[in-house]
Design a protein around this nucleic acid. Structure first.
Lengths: 200, 200
DNA sequence: TATAAAAAATACCGAGTAGTATGTTTTTGT
DNA sequence: ACAAAAACATACTACTCGGTATTTTTTATA
């Protein structure tokens, strides 16, 4: 195999394993050694490809977490059709798509936010970027819904977007504490009420 | 001073300092030594009063975090008057009461939930108890509002309670990422829309 | 095939970790 | 006043941490 290809392969392998361990056990309690043991490599390989732990933390946020949000919560918003309907199905489908593993460990982004969102500015900025992208996509859809006379023009698009994101992230954390989906069903009912109320 | 009084004083001093450090730096990255340095005592004193780190973690949840939620989010719900109004003012007042410090570090409970809510069952149970108490108090108020013909009887009290809590905890995390209150204002607008919609 | 560069492994450092064992000091009941 | 117990301090163990220095192995190229 070509050298640069192998290098890229190793780097992305490390990112994958790091993401998994950060998700399952948290950022701070995941050591470089654990990541490299999962990658079946040694610490020397890690420090050949990455500068330090902060760099891999940022990479995981910028690559894995951002991608996850984009693919599951932003891209589906670009569908044609009723804006309110798209809004609801995107959130509902996402919540329904979660595996046991996902439910148990919560939202990778929200875990990062609450564990290290106030730790160092670099993480703060990286996480804020993801949130802002998500928020902007929601605002665009809501604005579109207003233009098409589907959503009440009086409500603030930014406020609705913020409320939708905060409740979604909140419930992803709360679900960790339970061993059943009752709380998710309650959330979905609450969400449905909220969205219906935005109808023009 | 009497021995048992001094013992209680020391124990609660340790709880106070532990809570502060868990809140500011997280549970996992706060060591016993750091807690005891903040308490101006030594590790020997800690292990005389507490069994291990898990015990102090649980104590902090059961005493400090539960108390915080009760005093600021549950007790205010017992006021006389319009249920919807009480609901809104409780959430609004709480959010408005936060200091810079509180905004920067988010919600102590939510931090715990997202950092160690999936770590060990004991923490899961302790945190769930706090959430359940809060949820129950909200459900009682909403049910009262229904009886008094102030809140729509059709909506599920449990769903509304869950949605309110999840959005509040969500926004407490998100606020960490910003250096201004715009996101909190957006949240409050979103909350207001939501609560108004429950009117009978 | 020789050589340089990249990839990865090994060995190590100083600092920090939870927890223990064993001291010393202070308070208590008699 | 004295012995027991409680409160706290000191010193330590065995281990993990992030990061560095150095060496070995693999690969690309001339």
């Amino acid at each position: 195999m070509q050298q640069d290809q192998k290098s890229e392969l190793t780097k992305s392998l490390i990112i994958e394993e790091a993401f998994k361990l950060f998700y399952e056990n948290g950022f701070r309690s995941t050591s470089i050694e654990k990541i490299m043991k999962a990658s079946k490599l040694t610490k020397g390989a890690f420090y050949h490809h990455y500068k330090n732990k902060q760099e891999i933390g940022l990479k995981v946020i910028e690559v894995k977490i951002q991608k996850r949000v984009e693919e599951t919560m932003i891209t589906p918003l670009s569908c044609d059709g009723n804006a309110l309907h798209i809004l609801e199905t995107t959130f509902v489908n996402r919540l329904r798509s979660f595996s046991m593993y996902d439910k148990q460990h919560g939202c990778p982004m929200n875990n990062f936010i609450n564990e290290i969102g106030d730790y160092e500015t670099v993480y703060q900025v990286a996480l804020r970027n993801v949130i802002e992208k998500w928020k902007l996509a929601l605002i665009n859809l809501i604005d579109k819904g207003k233009k098409e006379n589907i959503i009440l023009p009086a409500v603030s698009s930014s406020a609705v977007a913020t409320y939708l994101i905060s409740s979604f992230e909140g419930i992803r954390g709360m679900r960790k504490l339970y061993n059943n989906d009752k709380i998710l069903d309650d959330y979905l009912s609450g969400l449905s009420i909220y969205i219906q109320q935005l109808k023009a």
